[in-house]
């Protein structure tokens, strides 16, 4: 079972986590046109690469960010949301 590094609880088996998808900043709903909004709601960065993802350590209900290569499953780093950085 894959190990996920939780910034609070350390390396834990993936079974303790819930995957929350890619981090997708919400555009200003009052400023964007309908197409942009629909694209935000439905579209995804489907192609593989290093992505910032939400993961939640379920026993502690801790949400955090994982930088992971979705092609190789390699995890670069993880951190809490308020330490969010750009990649």
């Amino acid at each position: 079972m894959k190990l996920i590094p939780c910034p609070i609880n350390g390396l834990r088996p993936v079974g303790e986590f819930v995957y929350g998808g890619e981090v997708r900043p919400m555009p200003d709903p009052n400023a964007v046109d309908d197409d942009t909004w629909a694209s935000y709601v439905f579209n995804r960065t489907g192609a593989p690469g290093v992505k910032q993802e939400w993961w939640c350590h379920s026993p502690s209900n801790t949400w955090f960010i994982v930088e992971r290569n979705t092609l190789t499953d390699e995890i670069m780093q993880s951190y809490l949301y308020d330490e969010m950085r750009t990649i």
Binding site: G21, S39, N43, T45, G46, A47, P48
Partner: peptide, 17 residues
């Protein structure tokens, strides 16, 4: 592999893999 091909033509889609 669709998202990888779509990337070549600059299209976005709701596909998730």
């Amino acid at each position: 592999f669709t998202p990888r091909i779509l990337r070549l033509v600059g299209l976005r889609s709701p596909l998730y893999i």
